[in-house]
Simulated assay, not measured.
Amino acid sequence: MLAQQIFNGLALGMGYALIAVGYSLVFGILRLVNFSHGAIYAFGAEMAMVFIGLNFGIVPGIIASMIVTGLLGIAIDKVALEPLRKKHSMPIASLITTIGISNIITNLLIVFLGSEKRNFPQLFNSGSVKIGSVVISSTQIMMCVVSLILMGVLVFIVYKTKIGLAMRASEQNAKAANLMGINVNFVISFTFFLAGMSATIAGALVGGYYQIVYPNMGFMAGLKAFAAAVLGGIGSLPGALLGGLIVGVSESMAASFIGSTYRDSIAFVILIIVLIVRPHGLFGRKGITKV
């Protein structure tokens, strides 16, 4: 049972890691916790459901939803956050704005798509693999494979491309980067686009895993992913991956050995313990301000 729950937790943790990546990307550039990211994750899952329902096919439908959700991320920044930056508003103003945006997105999903839970198609159905007494489904395997591939792509973009260099320069000193000819506003928009795309893939994978989506699915998942991002060191992509896996495995263990009632709280218990012992997270750098 222990080995089985570890594998179940790893698959679940990969979904949290992909959501946590969005928190880390935006925080790395703006030093802002984007609390609308959980709602963006739900929006991406719902859009994937809509496009697949329109007979786009599973892969084209997910790609289309990634683009739409990425554009939503850009719109959030351009409409609500960029004007606050231009007015040099206090950081708390942007934080509260993202909370408001989260509620707006969720309510719009309820208005246009309804509040009921809907069946999401199973993305992978190739049976299962049995290793001893441990049964690993094809869905769990593919969740891990797709998540690792996406994580590798994001790391490559951030550390091996020109736009990634511009992102890291903007993270270090936005004013200096602007003076060196870097379009910081474009870099920020691109970061929100990447965060939206990763959230959509997470929403599609988790929706396919549980075969269900609904407008409020991003609330608790977003909080757990935020806990994973802070646990790993918010702003660090490897930290987001490790934090997501720790949260996923811990949740799976808690559901099996303590009771499903406590599965949602275990992530925050671990977060509090880690922040007491290591305030900047497992891979975080000292000097980063936690919000």
Rank of each mutant, 00 (worst) to 15 (best):
L30C: 03
L30V: 05
L30E: 00
L30H: 01
R31Q: 00
R31F: 00
R31P: 00
L32G: 01
V33A: 09
N34G: 02
N34A: 07
F35R: 00
F35G: 00
S36V: 01
S36W: 02
H37K: 05
I40Y: 00
A42L: 09
A42D: 05
A42K: 06
A42F: 07
A45L: 12
A45F: 12
A45M: 14
E46P: 04
E46W: 08
E46G: 14
M47K: 13
A48M: 05
A48N: 10
M49E: 04
M49R: 14
F51Q: 12
I52Q: 09
I52V: 15
I52R: 13
N55Y: 14
F56G: 12
F56N: 10
F56S: 14
G57E: 11
G57F: 10
G57V: 15
G57D: 13
I58K: 12
I58D: 04
I58G: 02
P60G: 10
P60L: 09
I62Y: 09
I62A: 08
I63M: 00
A64D: 06
A64P: 06
A64E: 05
A64S: 13
S65F: 01
M66P: 07
M66D: 04
V68P: 01
V68I: 15
T69C: 08
T69K: 10
G70S: 04
L71S: 09
L72A: 14
G73Q: 07
G73T: 02
D77G: 02
D77V: 11
D77Y: 15
K78I: 00
V79W: 12
V79A: 13
A80Y: 10
A80C: 07
L81I: 14
P83N: 06
L84G: 01
R85M: 06
R85A: 08
K86F: 11
K87A: 08
K87L: 14
K87Y: 06
H88V: 06
H88E: 14
S89F: 01
M90P: 12
M90Y: 09
M90C: 03
P91E: 11
I92Y: 07
I92C: 08
I92R: 04
I92S: 08
A93K: 04
S94G: 07
S94E: 10
L95I: 12
L95E: 05
L95K: 02
I96D: 07
I96T: 10
I96E: 10
I96P: 02
